[in-house]
Design a protein around this nucleic acid. Sequence first.
DNA 1: CATGAATGAGGATTCATTCAT
DNA 2: GATGAATGAATCCTCATTCAT
Lengths: 192, 192, 192, 192
Amino acid sequence: MNIQLTEKKEQIFAAALSMINDHGFHGSPMSKIAKEAKVAVGSIYHYFASKEDLIIELYWYCSDILKNKALSIIESNQAYEIRFRLLWKELVLFYLDRMEIFGFMEQFYSSPFYEGIRAHIFKQKSERNMLIHFMEEGVEEKLLRDLNGALLISTYLGVAVSLVKRCLYHKNRPTDEEINTLVDIIWNGVKK
Amino acid sequence: MNIQLTEKKEQIFAAALSMINDHGFHGSPMSKIAKEAKVAVGSIYHYFASKEDLIIELYWYCSDILKNKALSIIESNQAYEIRFRLLWKELVLFYLDRMEIFGFMEQFYSSPFYEGIRAHIFKQKSERNMLIHFMEEGVEEKLLRDLNGALLISTYLGVAVSLVKRCLYHKNRPTDEEINTLVDIIWNGVKK
Amino acid sequence: MNIQLTEKKEQIFAAALSMINDHGFHGSPMSKIAKEAKVAVGSIYHYFASKEDLIIELYWYCSDILKNKALSIIESNQAYEIRFRLLWKELVLFYLDRMEIFGFMEQFYSSPFYEGIRAHIFKQKSERNMLIHFMEEGVEEKLLRDLNGALLISTYLGVAVSLVKRCLYHKNRPTDEEINTLVDIIWNGVKK
Amino acid sequence: MNIQLTEKKEQIFAAALSMINDHGFHGSPMSKIAKEAKVAVGSIYHYFASKEDLIIELYWYCSDILKNKALSIIESNQAYEIRFRLLWKELVLFYLDRMEIFGFMEQFYSSPFYEGIRAHIFKQKSERNMLIHFMEEGVEEKLLRDLNGALLISTYLGVAVSLVKRCLYHKNRPTDEEINTLVDIIWNGVKK
DNA sequence: CATGAATGAGGATTCATTCAT
DNA sequence: GATGAATGAATCCTCATTCAT
């Protein structure tokens, strides 16, 4: 399910990501995205049917990167708790390193665009569903409390998102110790 | 610090809240907000200098409601743990009951509007700062792990937001038991 | 034909004059004129039927002041040349001292408002017609070249207006000597 | 220093000129200018940043035409007095033939737009400065009275503008004889 | 008479999208 | 494929005017 990227498409994605992060969807006209991507407006319409289409494809693109990241850890050959902690840390570090992606996705999720494709996401092997599955694995192995995956994910992701958002606002970075402490809190909270 | 509301202003706020929730900032033209509020466009501009101003005042209005809610619990005469749990539950229930407020605030926080007033919020006796203070109280009383308030808040609020967002998306409601379980998870995670 | 002024009306005129001078007709909304005049908007509409009406009445008001000024000199008991020179100087000095009036009238004359009342002005004992008459008096007395009054006025007023405009732009004032020189030029040009 | 004109730009200029003449700046909405120019509103904004920008560029365009007109006479190989008279007549005739340009420029000069670029005009090789220079040439050659150029220009231009304005109002045209008489008056007034 | 809140038509401007080159 | 000029619907906002108090 990897998205094939021509060079132009990549430029457009990068420009859109940066622009949307700084100025929001509404503050990012196609003309400016085109200029930032050093591409003609018309060219964007060669690759994307509409602005909405561009944004949604951009979402899939980001989501894809995230999914691969997560998959490599989830499917690695380590003890559950190790993977549980590692995944969370890597997720946070990824977001911290790619703030544009984090910012974009947060905006996306609380935008009407999301509404249109939600059903699609829930059905699919999305990164979200992968994580729910990973939680359920922990429950089955009697390592996590007996709760439904969606609830566990609220905790797992909620704390991560909340932490990164705080850093985004304050323009700072958590120390390694802080990150470890937070995984600790989560693990202590959800472990059996 | 309560915001004074004329009847007209309240109509406008209600209309804006509902509209923005359904269609986002960009999908909520002043003309439609006016119509929904049964008010002339010009009248909105009598009360608010611009659309941006309306949105920011709406934020303060929501923030104020939230703050009062929180304050009444924080300052109540009960054991810390009771208040810790109650506050979290009430927060979640409030958001669940006033989804328009929750949805609006989430959009607001990940919009460029927020950028403009962030500094202002951090300095002020905002609901956020009240909660940080409440966390620090727990640390001082040796009831919570010795972490900085902002970090604790990431957990406390992150899980709540994440839960409510899930309900918003799925258009369902967590059971009381689920809510209790989540506070439990949080409390177990952060308690000393 | 003197316009009766209540105190309110005078405040409104003064405010309009100053405002229009600084920001033009279009940059002078009734609301701002009202504020500057320390009067409610509604009050302006008590005295004037519309904005256009206010502007046109303001024109008559200014024109009236000018006419009285001119009349007192034209009808004074002095030799024609003396009056010819004095009138010109006084006109220039009046405009220099009441730049708001000059600026307003210039704007008025090159605005569509003027179009609407031009016919009215030409028929009336306007300051313009008074001056034409004064020129014709000079021609009849064989003191001025035998030209039609309107043509003579073009010279007489054209130079005055041009001079004052230059001062308005440069925000300076002509010396007495300069003023005398210019009347001299005019007189030499038109005398028999 | 000629302004480059695409065909579209020229259509827009022509439409704006005519519209502004008939209805003033305020009575000339972009939408109507666009319609008159047979162009989409958006297209105007492709060429001009704003309405103000359009008006100011239109001013430069008119000023340029005038400057070239004047230059060709001033630099021609004829006696000073001949050029002095010819230039004045041609100026008047040009204005009479291109009333839209005259009307526009008069409105422009007594509008707030002018304020913004005045400094620019005074510094530049504007038609005004060219004329001042031409007057000074006459003074140096001892053909004109020893006055500063700006003062002489007040006379030279003031009478011309005043004459044309009269014709604009009365919708008539001066006879050749009348024009000659007026240059005569001016020349007699300012010659040594 | 005086006030100023309320109205809504109208104007400047933006921007997604198209299409001829 | 690529370009960017052209389009015009849609948006924000202004402001003359009205009218209830």
